[in-house]
């Protein structure tokens, strides 16, 4: 093992934080729908990639600014999330079946992406792509920094909403005991639609961040599932801050492993962490 230079280590640390914030951003919607609606929404990843491809299309072909694409994507995704929850509740889909159904949706979205954009790698050209600044000897890329800030902003505002508003209290009460929450006037079905809409819109935001910093291909959908699941479970289901914190821990652990040992060892770190958490706090999950 060669000890790398401090600059390399610092740069690894930074890139670990950045990729970890994307794990957290992808995990936020997943954690909310898992913890509060008892749905394991695999389609969240496919939706994020669909968002990324739509951002790519609107930016590269139509010529919109990537950030402006959110104005179109967020309402559409919110509506998709609401529709999905409406169907789930209409057909009374159980937590386990939600896994199967959303896996089906994932495959459909993947095929759709492959049909529209082919299986070739796509990389979005935008004004932000090569923006970066230097702090000491370290480079800070703007798109990744944007991802980190967005992830922090969304996680904190979701936390504050759940903690300090009547709507948030109603959501938490509903997740604990829906029947009793309803007895005090909480309209569970309406809240579930709202939550699912927000969760899908979060996937849209994650999609924008994916498009800003990563090369896209349809099969990449599956590459993120394992590690984001680990972040969600370590962070605690339904906890809006947990996935971000756990995501950054995993991201940094992976990046340091890559720098110190070899890139091939990185997945071992995240899954070792997951196994340790599953063993030690299984009751919390």
């Amino acid at each position: 093992m060669n000890f790398p230079s401090w600059t390399l280590l610092g740069q690894s640390l930074l890139s670990g934080i950045f990729i970890g914030s994307l794990y957290g951003l992808l995990g936020l919607g997943l954690s909310l729908s898992w913890g509060m609606l008892r749905q394991i929404n695999l389609a969240h990843f496919a939706l994020a990639f669909l968002g990324a491809y739509l951002t790519f299309q609107l930016t590269s072909v139509v010529g919109m600014d990537p950030l402006m694409t959110l104005a179109l994507i967020l309402p559409c995704f919110f509506a998709f999330g609401v529709l999905m929850q409406w169907l789930f509740s209409r057909f009374a889909i159980s937590p386990f079946n939600s896994l199967l159904v959303t896996f089906g949706i994932t495959v459909i979205i993947e095929s759709l992406i492959q049909w529209l954009w082919t299986a070739d790698y796509r990389r979005m050209d935008s004004v932000y792509a090569d923006m970066k600044f230097k702090v000491g000897t370290l480079y800070v890329p703007i798109p990744e920094l944007f991802t980190l800030l967005i992830a922090i902003l969304l996680s904190l505002s979701t936390w504050a909403l759940l903690r300090y508003t009547d709507l948030g209290r109603a959501l938490r009460a509903s997740a604990e005991d829906g029947q009793i929450a309803a007895a005090f006037g909480v309209n569970e079905k309406k809240l579930a639609l709202l939550l699912s809409g927000f969760s899908a819109a979060f996937a849209g935001v994650a999609g924008l961040c994916l498009a800003l910093s990563y090369t896209l291909s349809p099969s990449q959908i599956y590459a993120w599932i394992g590690v984001v699941f680990a972040a969600v479970m370590i962070g605690g289901l339904g906890n809006p801050i947990g996935p971000l914190v756990a995501g950054i821990v995993i991201g940094v652990a992976e990046a340091i492993t890559m720098a110190l040992i070899s890139p091939a060892w990185a997945p071992l770190v995240s899954f070792s962490l997951l196994i340790i958490v599953l063993l030690t706090r299984a009751d919390k999950i």
């Binding site: 009547d166 209290r169 109603a170 938490r172 009460a173 604990e176 009793i180 005090f184 006037g185 909480v186």
Partner: peptide
């Protein structure tokens, strides 16, 4: 059937939802 993970105050506030 309290909302056990929520604070006492939050339980009371939920009563007046």
């Amino acid at each position: 059937r309290l909302f056990v993970a929520m604070s006492v105050l939050e339980n009371l506030e939920l009563g007046s939802f």
